Structures are given as structure tokens and as C-alpha cells.
Computed example of a mutant assay.
Amino acid sequence: MKKKKAVSWLNSEFQNLDLVDLLGERHFLLRSLTERLWNDSHEIYISNSEWFIMARIYKKQPTIAYVSKYVDISRQATHKFIKSLESKGLVEIKNAENNRKEKCLSLTKLGEECYEKNEALKATLEEKIADKIGSENISLLKEILKMDWGLSRDYYNNTENK
């Protein structure tokens, strides 16, 4: 009974939200769910922030500065999360080839395995959502989210100065 009340509360709460808040609430709900699903079934605890960082590293060797720039986490917190990922054996930190001050990141074999398992977990979640709202709607939603909305990180900075 509790689950039904929670679902109907969510649905009624979502009815009065604008686009930005709807996207934010759904994002928060999905991220919380995927984090809980992972952490309930695996020995290595990985936070959403750590997953976000791992996504920027997967199959690449970016610098710490690059990762810090493209995750919406403070530089200090990003460094803390990277150290945590390193201590869990998920990330390796190396000196950059061309610049000894810069450090490059890569996922370890364990890090890649965890990342790929989490991708499979998210794919399963997407299938469950598709069962509820239809695979055509999932495809349409993904296409809409991929479109150029005429906004960027620079958009806010440009409008702020006017």
C-alpha cells in the first residue's frame, strides 16, 4: 500500500512542475534508484558523483583538470572523489606525457568492469521504463533530449551580462 501512495504522490506532484523542475526531479529519481540498485547488489560502494566522474574517464585518459571542468562538482570535491575512486582500485592516476604538472586518469580493469555492469543495470532500468511508457516514447524522449536546444553553458553567461 505504501508503494502505491508514493507513486500517486509522485504523479500528483509532477503535474504542477515546469520543464526544468520535471527534468530535475526525474533525473534525481533515476540517479537515486541506479545508485541504490548498484550499492545494494555490489561490494564496492560508488556514489552518483563517482559514477559521473567515471563516465568522463571511460575509454579515455582525460586530465584531472578536464574532468573537473566537465563535472558540475567543485574542484576540491572532484579531487576528493578521484582519490576515493583510486583507493577503491577503480581509477589510476598517472603523469601526463607532455606536462609533468598535469595528471591523467584512466579506469582500471576493475573500474571498466564496474562501469560496464552499471551501464547494463541502467539499460535494464530503461527497459522497465519502456514497458510502462512505450519504447516509441523512450526513443522520442531520447531524440528530444539530444536535440540542440540553443542553450549551452555560455548561454547563461551571455544573458547574465546583458
Rank of each mutant, 00 (worst) to 15 (best):
T159I: 14
N158P: 00
I144D: 07
E136S: 10
G111K: 00
L107M: 05
A65D: 15
K80W: 02
L121W: 01
K103T: 03
A130K: 02
K4H: 09
I44G: 01
T78Q: 00
L151S: 04
M54V: 08
N158F: 12
T124I: 06
L23V: 11
R100K: 14
T63F: 08
E13N: 14
S87L: 10
N158I: 15
V20R: 09
V71P: 01
R100P: 07
W51K: 05
F14V: 10
D21K: 13
I57A: 02
L29I: 15
K109C: 04
K3N: 03
G150R: 03
D40L: 11
I44R: 04
S41W: 00
E136H: 11
Y156Q: 09
K59D: 13
D18G: 08
K69A: 08
L141V: 10
L145M: 15
D148L: 07
F14G: 05
A6R: 13
K132I: 14
L140H: 03
K94L: 11
L140W: 05
K59I: 02
T63H: 00
K83D: 14
S49M: 09
A6E: 15
E43M: 05
N98T: 07
E136R: 12
K162S: 10
D154M: 12
W149H: 15
K2F: 06
E25N: 14
T78D: 07
L17I: 05
I82Y: 04
L37M: 06
K142F: 06
K122A: 03
D131A: 14
K69F: 10
N157R: 14
L23D: 03
L90I: 01
E92K: 14
G150N: 04
E143M: 09
Y45E: 11
K128F: 03
W9T: 13
N16M: 05
K146P: 03
T34F: 02
L140D: 06
M1S: 11
D154T: 12
S47W: 04
T108R: 04
S68F: 00
K109H: 07
V7Q: 10
R31L: 07
Y115G: 04
T63I: 02
G111Q: 02
S139F: 12
W149I: 03
L23W: 07
